[in-house]
Every structure is written in C-alpha cells, then in structure tokens.
C-alpha cells in the first residue's frame, strides 16, 4: 500500500523544498506549543510545589485529581474549551475561537496537570531531605516552596519536556478549537490529520517524520542544557 521509503523521501523533499507554507506551519506549532508549555510551567511548578509541601484539607484528593487529569483526552479538553469560547458560550465575547490563542488555552489545560503532577513528585522527594532543615531555619511555606523549586530546577526540565511532548503530539484539542484554518491555525498535527484524510499518506507520514525530528531536537537541546548546567551547579 505504502512504502516507508516513500514517506522518508517525502519528508526529505519537504525539508529540502522548505516551502513557506511548511515553515509557517512549523513556526505556528512551535509558537503555540512552547507558549502553552511556558504558561503550564508557570502554573504547574507552583501548584506542584504547593501539593508537595502544603498542608491543607483535601490535599490528597487534589493530588489524585491532578494525577488523573494527566490522562485527559485531548478531544475532551478541546470540546470543553470550544464550549467556553464559542460565541454561544460564556467567553464568546472574547472572540478567541479559531485563533492560536484558543489553541494555547486548550494545550495549557492539557499540559498543566502533567507538569504539576511531575513537579509534585520531584519536590516531595527533595523535601524529604530539605524539610527539617528549612523548618529549623524558620522558613515559611512559600519560601520553602521557592527554595525547593529553585534547587529542583534541573529535574523540573524533565517535567517541562513531558508536557512539551504531549502538547507537540496532540491533535484532538487544537483541531476543535483552532479549526485547522489554513495560514491561521494549521499546525503540524492538524496538517498531518488533513493530509491523511486526503489520502496523501506519504506526505502525512513525511510531516510526521519532521515533527518527530523537531521533538528530538528540542529534547536533546533541553537535556543537554540540563546536563551542563547541573554539572556546573552541584557536580
């Protein structure tokens, strides 16, 4: 039916050709995903630290909830965000549906639980070691969270990467809230879905290979950065 070789040559052709449309799609993918992961980190890191260090009612229930939300199906998130942002929905006046901002919102919701849950795990482990010391120094909870987050910063790169992988790979949410509009909200994954539905399987797979390459490069860069920085900081 289809040779893998054809897919690779399609991918190669796309890269060599480097046409404006492809660059636009890749750029939007990166822009949406990186923004979503950034926002998710800004929410997920403190939230994870709070769940690790904080002592408040329902904490355990919240931990279970956040862990469970890691498995949120993208389509469900997409539908939820669609219902909020639809002109018939409560936030319709913002006119955000079918814009990259809507895609960022959906991916942020998708990624935040992953980053928060992994952060909680990392911070909780580190706090076993730090807790007595920091309490003996008279550190408040907030300051304790800050100290732990800062000291765990290299481990948290991995949490961010897990979120990045999820955001870069998902199609269900961005398809619904972005609409896969050419030149406006078309990203790598929705383009792949579109080419597949057009029966252009080699092209779809070719785009998939580029997406994977992109993901490998991003991961390698961040992990490399983490290694080097970590060695400098605590050998």
């Amino acid at each position: 039916m289809l040779e893998i070789g054809t897919a690779f040559s399609a991918a190669f052709g796309l890269i060599i050709g480097l046409d404006a449309d492809l660059i636009e799609i890749i750029a939007l993918s990166l822009q949406v995903t990186l923004t979503a992961v950034l926002v998710a980190c800004l929410i997920g890191f403190p939230l994870g630290a709070l769940l690790a260090v904080g002592r408040f009612p329902m904490r355990n229930a919240l931990v279970v909830l956040v862990n469970a939300l890691m498995g949120l199906p993208p389509v469900v998130v997409g539908l939820g965000v669609y219902l909020m942002l639809s002109r018939a929905g409560p936030l319709g006046v913002l006119n955000l549906l079918y814009t990259p901002t809507a895609m960022v919102i959906a991916q942020t919701i998708l990624v935040t639980p992953i980053i928060a849950a992994l952060t909680r795990q990392v911070i909780e482990d580190m706090n076993i070691e730090y807790d007595e010391l920091l309490r003996s120094m008279g550190t408040g909870r907030l300051s304790q969270m800050q100290t732990l987050l800062w000291d765990a910063r290299y481990a948290l790169v991995t949490a961010a990467l897990a979120g990045l992988g999820r955001a870069l790979a998902e199609v269900g949410a961005v398809m619904i809230v972005g609409g896969n509009i050419n030149h406006v909200t078309r990203v790598m994954t929705t383009a792949i879905a579109l080419e597949t539905s057009k029966g252009e399987l080699a092209l779809a797979l070719g785009l998939g290979i580029i997406l994977m390459t992109l993901s490998i490069v991003l991961n390698a860069t961040l992990m490399g950065f983490r290694r080097t920085a970590e060695r400098m900081a605590y050998a």
């Binding site: 003996s136 100290t147 000291d151 900081a233």
Partner: peptide
Amino acid sequence: VSIVFQRPVLLRR
C-alpha cells in the same frame, strides 16, 4: 535557635 545535624543538609548550590 539554630540546629546542625549529624549529616549536613546542604542546598544544591
């Protein structure tokens, strides 16, 4: 009050 433990807990800094 300050306390020093048998095994020092130092920050990763």
